[in-house]
């Protein structure tokens, strides 16, 4: 009986500590607007493809800047926490999942662009096709956030 109580108390302690680590990760996850900034950057890069010799590189540069800014700010925010990340984030299945996400985003972009080219000017097709791809990229970065920081956003008081 004494051993059982001691074992129960020890296991409760283990669960409490693991919950603390999960809470710490969750507190320092990237903010929601960083996900939006990432998706907006992804949209801008894809939408810039047919905007002309001089405009395309400038707009694409802006898009990449938004992408890198979103990732950089997320890394900086996560680095403030007491835990760098969960262990074993990248399993083979998750790596395959990430590749599937990327493939899906570009496939959707390509398919919508192909369809839109029949109705829209050449420069406008990527602008339209980038919308669903950017929405997918938001889900993708949200999924990455779940892998890296656990499910759910921090409570308002923890912000």
């Amino acid at each position: 009986m004494e051993h059982e109580q001691e074992a129960r108390a020890a296991l409760d302690g283990v669960r409490r500590m693991q919950t603390s680590v999960e809470g710490e990760l969750n507190r320092n996850r990237p903010r929601w607007w960083m996900d939006i900034l990432y998706a907006a950057g992804f949209y801008t890069v894809l939408a810039s493809l047919e905007l002309g010799t001089w405009i395309s590189p400038a707009v694409a540069g802006l898009g990449f800047a938004m992408l890198f800014l979103a990732v950089g700010l997320g890394i900086l925010r996560a680095a403030r926490g007491g835990v760098r990340g969960p262990r074993r984030v990248w399993t083979p299945a998750r790596a395959v999942g990430a590749a599937a996400w990327l493939a899906a985003m570009f496939a959707v972009f390509w398919a919508v662009r192909t369809l839109a080219e029949g109705f829209l000017p050449e420069w406008a097709a990527p602008v339209v096709a980038a919308v669903p791809a950017a929405v997918l990229s938001w889900f993708f970065v949200h999924w990455l956030g779940r892998l890296g920081f656990g499910p759910g956003r921090p409570a308002a008081r923890a912000e």
Binding site: Q18, V21, G82, V83, R84, G85, P86, R87
Partner: peptide, 19 residues
């Protein structure tokens, strides 16, 4: 020590100050 191991098992690079 069990608490330390539990935290180290749950996270990668757990900071001394946090523990």
């Amino acid at each position: 020590r069990l608490s330390i191991m539990a935290m180290a098992s749950a996270g990668k690079g757990v900071e001394f100050r946090f523990i």
